[in-house]
Every structure is written in C-alpha cells, then in structure tokens.
Design a protein around this nucleic acid. Structure first.
Lengths: 199, 199
DNA sequence: ACCTGAACACCGTTCAAGT
DNA sequence: ACCTGAACACCGTTCAAGT
C-alpha cells in the first residue's frame, strides 16, 4: 500500500513507513508483525527479509522519529540551546502516537536514541563542562524527557478510554508543556551551579 | 509452592509472592500468566479469580516493590531527605530483577508508584515550596529515577547476554551509583534556585 | 532478492461447569 | 470461594520452497 498498489515486492523503507503509519493510527500494542504484514499485503515471514526481528524494526522507527526533531537556532546561550533541544525532542516524540515509548524501549540497548543523547551532550559541552559531566547531564535530561513524554502519551491514551485513576486524571488537567519546561529548568539550573573546567 | 505444598487453593498473596519470585528469577518477559499458573500448579484461568487481569497483578507487584524502600532518617535537611528518598527508591527497584520496568509501566495509569510520588512530594514540600512546585519536582525526580534504573537494569540484562551495542557497554562500565547521584543533585540544585513561598 | 505456505511454540482472557 | 477444561483470538519467528 505504501508504494506498490497491487504488485508485490517491497523495500525496507516501505516496511518502516507502513509500520510508522500503523503506530500513529493504532498505537504500539497494535503494531504487530502480522498486522504489518497484512497492511503490506504480504505473509508475516516476508518481513524477516527486511528486518532480522521486531526489535530492529522498532529501533529503525525510533531513529526516524527522533530524526524529525527541529534544530535549535544558532547563536543561543548554551542553556537556551539545551531548552530548545528538549522542546524539539518533545515535539518530535509527540508527533507519533506512542513515540516516546518506542524511543524509550529502544534506548536501553544503545540502538536508538543515540542522536538525542549526542545533541544534549553537545549542547551541555558548549557550556564549558567536562565530558563526563556533559554525558551524565545529557542522560539525566534524556531520562526526564522520555519519562515525561511517555507518561503524557499514556495519559492521552487512557484518558480517551476513560480508564484513568483519579490522581492521574487530575494531573492530566494541568498544562503538560509547562510542567515539562519546569523539569528541564531544574536540570539546567542545577547544571549552572556545577563548577566548570573552563569558562 | 508458596504456601500449599500439594493441596489446592491459593490466596491472592500467594499469587503475588510467586509472581515476584518468577520476576526476580527469570525477569519480566518470562512472567506470563501461564508460567505463573504452572508455578502455582493451577490452570491459567484460576488466576483470574485473584486478579481481574495481568495489569492489575503488575500494579500489585509494583506496590510491593516500592513498599520496601527504606525510610530516610528524620532530622535531615529537606535536600538530604530528597537525596535519601531517591537512593532508597533506587535500592528498592534494584532489589528485584526488572523492578524499575514494572513500576514504570504501572506508573502511567496512576495505579502503582503513588507512594514514591507522595514521598518525594512531601520531602520537597518540607523545603518550603508551594504544592504545584513540589508536585512537579516530585514527578521530575520520579521520571529520572525510573528512567535511570530501568536503563541500569536493562544494561545488566543485555550485558549478561553479550548483546550490547558498544556505546551502551562503555557507559555500563562507569559507576552507576555516582551517575545516579549526579542526576539527583542536578534536580535538587535546580530546586534550590527556585523562589520559595515561605522560608 | 523477495516472497509463500506451513508450522512451532507460545500468549492473555473468557466461560460453563465442578466442589 | 476457588478451581478445571476447553476454547477463542491472537503472538514472534523459522524454514523449506518457489520466482
């Protein structure tokens, strides 16, 4: 359906694109190899010609999701660059249903989410911090972003199903973007108190 | 096996305890309803007398895991209380294989992880911050802790299987406890720069 | 290179029926 | 109250074979 209307033969890119469409339309739980195969009008086993397993497919989707994060304007203060990177990453994750979950699940293996980590690391390094500090700050930033947006997206999902517990439902009412910015500000603020190797 | 050696009839507590044992011995992917039933020497359908579904069972496990977090010493500075709560929660999550993943997956629904959130909130509130600030800081702290420890535990798992990508493997070498404390310090440090409603 | 057909070894959940 | 037996509607992955 992606590029071949009725004829067989798909490329790896077709498979990834169709998978992203299923993800966005129906969510991660419905993104099964069998459903993906059906959408491509192909047997499930055919998918294993393009990806060795589902995990590798999800890593590819994670890469594509984070690749759409906007580049911060140049000439910004290092701390504003960090804030801009965080906001851009959040927007990219929110652009696909369950986007944060996909990136999160893939991040642990060092397969996906390498790009966001590098971008945070570079932004912090520009503040004059040593490599170890920059890397640790970057993983803290990334953990917060993935956790926050995962939470945000799962609330959207459960809220639309009306299965949400009271406490979570109340929290969903407050502005997510503001709470997100606050968390990033805490990390950036904490970083500003850390001694720099060079200023 | 938990309380009945050969006779039938189990309690909800038996089921939860056996589930925790499977979790710790074999990990979350192996904790299936069918495997749990087999360990209890019972048909899978029998489990649904004790828990309405798997999600509810996991929420119960999450509650039990975080309940084992140690109480910080009293008389500490608010910021040291936050640090102590974070360390105690990390220890509790590390005490069970895939503990962070279980708590994390259950946190989004407001089913589990209510206790850790309240404890962080109380610790921050003791610093004289308003409720909104305390709640947001608490969720930021919780997101960092769950993300960090999930990551940590998945590295342990994949490392033992030798399936780890280079970058993640290198990162696994550095001291996790130190990196964890650094992340918490950033959040606490950021909080110390926020204006208080009362001091 | 890309795919089919068929199978293997599983899942969570429901439901009538038993004690 | 707690459980059995049987079924329903699925999973991811492998592998010989086809073009």
């Amino acid at each position: 359906m992606t590029s071949n209307e009725s004829g067989r033969r798909h490329t790896r890119d077709d498979v990834a694109r169709t998978a992203l469409r299923i993800l966005d339309d129906d969510g991660l739980p419905d993104l099964t190899m069998r459903r993906l195969a059906a959408a491509l009008d192909v047997q499930p086993s055919a998918l294993y010609h393009h990806f060795p397993n589902k995990q590798t497919l999800l890593a590819e989707l994670a890469d594509r999701i984070v690749a759409r994060a906007a580049q911060p304007a140049s000439g910004l203060d290092w701390s504003d660059t960090v804030r801009a990177e965080a906001a851009a990453l959040r927007d990219a994750l929110l652009a696909y249903r369950d986007g944060a979950e996909v990136v999160s699940s893939t991040f642990a293996l060092g397969l996906g989410a390498g790009a966001p980590l590098d971008r945070f690391t570079d932004a912090v390094t520009a503040g004059g911090f040593d490599d170890e500090t920059a890397r640790r700050a970057a993983t803290a930033l990334l953990h917060f972003v993935l956790g926050h947006v995962s939470h945000e997206q799962q609330r959207l999902q459960y809220d639309s199903l009306g299965v949400l517990a009271d406490s979570a439902s109340a929290e969903a009412g407050t502005d997510s973007a503001e709470a997100f910015a606050f968390g990033i500000d805490l990390l950036v603020g904490g970083l500003e108190r850390v001694s720099r190797s060079r200023t």
